[in-house]
Amino acid sequence: MTIALSEISECFLGEIPTMMATCSEDGTPNLVHLSQVFLVDDSHVAISNQFLAKSAANLAANPVASLVCIDPGTYDTYRLVVRLLRSETDGDRFDGARTSIDAIAALTGMTGVLQLRSIDVFRVVDVALVPYGHSDDTSTP
């Protein structure tokens, strides 16, 4: 990877939603907003699976996906190519996320609706800055 995940750690604070693109067996892409992507370590990220039925089906057939995230400090856009490694349905990471989601559900009146299905852990294959090149674009990563 040309960009280390630690260099873009602010992308994983959950301030700006991330987009995930998956692809079905027949080549049809699917997009979904992710409220937060979790930084696991230097080469892995994870997502919380709540309403991702189509994405989950696509990933079961084709485990490679793309994430596009935005640094909330600079608004730089990054593209991550990722490969699904496993889906966790217990353990510390799952329990921590479930506690957080349960709290959000309680605050938004969606208890019983917002339910964590799994924590999906991905290996990050590539990270790249997306150079939109707008005329106001003066920052560098």
Binding site: M19, M20, A21, T22, C23, S24, E25, G27, T28, P29, N30, L31, N58, N62, V64, A65, S66, V68, T77, R79, V81, V130, Y132
Partner: peptide, 16 residues
């Protein structure tokens, strides 16, 4: 608004 595509290897991508 975002556009999702897939390449010949069925690797999906997304662009604004």
């Amino acid at each position: 608004a975002m556009l999702g595509t897939a390449d010949g290897l069925h690797v999906a991508d997304v662009t604004r």
